[in-house]
Design a protein around this nucleic acid. Structure first.
Length: 166
DNA sequence: TAACTGATTGTTTAG
DNA sequence: CTAAACAATCAGTTA
């Protein structure tokens, strides 16, 4: 019996937090605080903001990983579609439609990316502390072995989707 | 010319 | 904890 799993209670809490964000509607998550479009704090490329030479870009989340594949598929079915928003919307809906088991592989990938990201952050942090100013630091290649090709053995947790909400 | 925009959700970061 | 920004994408739009 797994007892109450603690999913219900915990989930509810997490949901509340998310809901809070959802409440914002997120319709332009940035304009919410900065109605001033003058602020280009959007997702513009780091071309302009390129300040840190080793600034580690955030790894794609499970959703993005799934989206990457989804985009290809979508383009195949809709080669005429020319709008990132179209894929985004379609992907979002599909994403919600995926069951935990299907999202598992994506999440797993995202988890791994996060691991690597942490390493990058370590190096990034080090630089910041060391020499913030330019300086081309050759630095030392302390970390190089970031290759873990170990695929989980089979401990896949199949959590058949559970739709017992409510 | 080139940055910014939209649209999705998830993760990350800073306060 | 909370709120906000940013991650990819790609054609379209604006300064």
């Amino acid at each position: 019996m797994k007892a109450a799993k603690g999913k219900g209670a915990v989930k509810k809490d997490a949901k509340e937090s998310l809901k809070l964000v959802d409440d914002r509607k997120i319709g332009k998550r940035k304009a919410a605080v900065k109605p001033d479009k003058g602020s280009k704090r959007k997702a513009k490329k780091e071309k302009l903001a390129k300040k840190d030479p080793n600034k580690p870009k955030r790894p794609p989340s499970a959703f993005f990983v799934f989206l990457e594949e989804f985009r290809k598929t979508y383009k195949q079915d809709h080669p005429n579609v020319k709008a990132v928003s179209a894929v985004g919307k379609a992907g979002g809906e599909k994403w919600k439609s995926l069951s935990v088991a299907e999202k598992a592989p994506y999440e797993a990938k995202a988890a791994k990316k996060k691991s690597e990201y942490e390493k990058l952050m370590n190096a990034y942090n080090k630089k910041q502390e060391s020499g913030a100013d330019d300086g081309d630091e050759e630095s030392d290649r302390s970390r190089s072995e970031i290759n873990d090709e170990d695929e989980e053995s089979g401990a896949e947790e199949e959590e058949e989707e559970e739709d017992d909400e409510d």
